[in-house]
Design a protein around this nucleic acid. Sequence first.
RNA 1: GCCGAAGUGGCGGAACUGGCAUACGCGCACGACUCAAAAUCGUGUCCCGCUCGGCGGGAUGAGGGUUCAAUUCCCUCCUUCGGCACCA
Length: 948
Amino acid sequence: MGPAESPAPAQPKAIQVGADTITEGGIYQPEVLEPKWQKRWEQDGLYRAVVDPTLKKFYALTMLPYPSGDLHIGHWYAMTPSDARARFMRMRGYNVMFPIGFDAFGLPAENAAIKVGVHPRKWTYANIERMRTQLRAMGAMWDWTREAVSSDPEYYRWTQWFFVQLFKQGLAYKKMSPVDWCPNCNTTLAREQVWGDDRHCERCETPVIKKNLDQWFFRLTNYAEELLDFSHCDWPDRVKTLQTNWIGRSEGARVIFQTEVGDPLEVFTTRPDTLWGATFMVLAPEHPLVEKITASENKAEVKAYMQQAVRQTDIQRESADKEKTGVFTGGFAVNPVNGVRIPIWIADYVLITYGTGAIMAVPAHDKRDFDFAMKYGLPILPVINRTDGLTKSFALGKTMQPGLADALRAEEIPFEERQGSLYINIPPEKIDRYIEIARAHLNPSSWNEIVGTRWVFIFPDGVREWDSIDSEQEILARCQELEPNVREKRSLMEMVWGVEFYRDALFHDQQGELIHSAEFSGTPGAEAVRKVSEWLAARNAGGPAVSYRLRDWLISRQRYWGAPIPMVYCPVHGQVPVPEDQLPVLLPDDVEWKPTGESPLKLHPTWAKTSCPVCGSPAERDTDTMDTFVCSSWYHLRYLSPKYDRGPFDPAEYDYWMPVDCYTGGIEHATMHLIYTRFFHKACRDMGITRGPEPMLQLRNQGIILGEDSEKMSKSRGNVVAPDDLVKKYGADTVRAYLMFFARWSQGAPWNSQGIEGTHRWLNRVWALLTQVPKNTSTDAGEHADRILSRVMHQTIRRVTRDFENFEFNTVISALMEFTNTLYKYRETSLYGTPVWEEAADILMLMMSPVATHMAEELWHRRKGAGTASIHLQKWPTFDPALAAEEEATIVVQVNGKVRERLQLPIGAGEAEARRLALASDAVQKWLAGKEPRHVIYVPDKLINLVV
RNA sequence: GCCGAAGUGGCGGAACUGGCAUACGCGCACGACUCAAAAUCGUGUCCCGCUCGGCGGGAUGAGGGUUCAAUUCCCUCCUUCGGCACCA
């Protein structure tokens, strides 16, 4: 023999079979058949979604991609399993719409323009063109006729139209306010786009700063309550929790205090039950009342404080560890419940953006107020009883007569004695008895006090309760008179805080029975919250109230590449929306998009100059553009009819397709896009534009694919997986299948470049199984082989159907792999080619077709012959429970819960039978050791447990 | 600090309603084919022990509880990840 030659790979040859072109040759060649079928499907309009009232519709949607220029493996991970599921639904008889488009406005285009000098429009549309090609390589069932691009004038015309509708409805408003500004992106950001401890920009991670700007907002907060209702949302709990926390609902009460300058001062509190403990008030430095209530002698200090508060960044200001600062305004307010006059301070730990921007401070039961009061020596008054009964007294040696210790022992009051002083823990029921004992042993010119459950000072001439601000002052003065050491203490709390032993009894923030609260004393916590709220309401001094953490949505952006805000400023008529028939307000091409911090449109020589739509006098356009989340809040509506020009969408299409039945995408949008789009839908519903409670009924999130090194994929780490390379190497079907298989879809996992080989191997095995005739089929398949294969087939249909329904794609694939293995087991036997074999082969192809879209189509055509309809038009197979049912079950025999034997019994075997056979087993007898089972648990078809 | 999710072989993971833990795949080992390798195919692969084709014990982050029986239900703790954080 001469030198060995490796066999040349079979060259594929295209052959014509009727209308079908089929690749001849034994080798699986995705690079040949994938483009072929993609082209064919496109020509046939196979995935066109057309309104058909005779069919049940299914609107499947994946989140709109940004045209960054390169499809990432994350896009594949988000889109191809979603596509497979949409295909599954289609095969189950639904009329499925699965559209695609581009979120084409936004900063990267502008940043690229600044960096390399390409116009944002050119950059964006070139990227879109490239991504269309990449998206087509997925073999997905996109209906490209419904493609929508948010930067097209025919799209943003309607983004602007929605803005105008919101404005007319009073849901869009302009306001001067301190807003988050990203110094790198040179624009404002919505609250949701500011992330993390250091409050950085969601996009570029630069820490944001505050700027005071006149900006447009959408009234998200109007819908806060409704957004908390997820009763129509089949959504992951995680997303619902994130949104719920983000909205941050707090129940409590409004309380109106009267200031001495005459203006009412309203606060929000979650603890109206602590109202009697309010010893001062605090306003945010930006609070509008600050100026008016500040006394003339405090003006300078207050002004200085306000200035330094404004200068600070949010990070400094909102850091919880920061020591609290503030200044007294010189003003006072009157507590509506008891008429007590309390000082008003300003401090930056109170936020102007939450509640009313003012608080009543109850330092005894709020940690922040406590810290502040202790720092500035403000009075503290406990008004809520402890729930743990902790009650303490410290008896300094020189203040008490000898015999106290013996008296306490006799009374069984526990204490510790150290250096002649007693550290006493008083059982709550013995407090009165203790007071008697303490009085009896008190030295003249001394006192003793109780803290915790009771707040009592025992003086030689009597007992004084610490139950009001007045008594607090009197007691403090009295103590200072008796003891020079406490003369510098500014409050009674500060004085007792000096005793280390007391510290854990001095502060708590639990709910509990009210004390020191006039007629409400003795009321239990939850009841007190309710009763005090009602009491306030009855006296027009407030009442029950709800507050939300959610803020209105800031949508102005000082950037070029976005939808211009369609507003005109007229010196006579003020804010005037651009009339609907004049939309869109077109973005000019000739702008300088340099990052100046000003809107590029503002620097355009002529663009902003216009005339007032009302009076025609010279007027100015708004030169900001809209946050791109506005564009993406309604794209699911534009997909309905991207060319429609009499409205944002064709109502007939809306009636049929909406709402979205299944929405898939990443969890990172939980508090941004997914809140905005719900808001948009609900606002539009209230204007009669949309219908129904929710835009997206079902939501599922995919996880994140990490790099092979388990780190986040990034170019700088060099761990990026490029889908184009994978498609080239393995074909799209392998990539699709692997993405579905390699991890729980909802969770994601690190990439594994060896793992994909296994999936590729599987597809090759399926290919060989269905294209190659085995050498030998004479071996007997064994008894009932046909029934076994049929059973496995029906069981597989059951498993795959269930797992597809539940988005459990990894087990869809493993079930199909197992089914393939079963077929391989019988391939070289007499079962090959029998009707049940052929049926199983068909079913395997059908169930693989949502996954390996091209391969399944190719195999289908090869096996079904010329002119066959696409596999993607076939029905999903159904299973027959009778045929899927096992005939025999393995019964596990346990002795005392441990497996000792296994029995093969027919399904439905009775307990007596199982018991008889179990007891007949030697292994079981060995473990029973001659004893009779005391107790037998029998689970039919599963297990018998003998307990001795 | 508060809220939430998750911890199962060397790795990704499976286990439906409390009933055989570790399916499927990767990796690894051995074998077949080959001069050889790749590819492919086959066999094995949680840990420990033993009188080793079998048998016994242990193991689902740790500890406890409920139960005839717990990866699954309950409690405590640990770790990791995510979100919120001076929100009154």
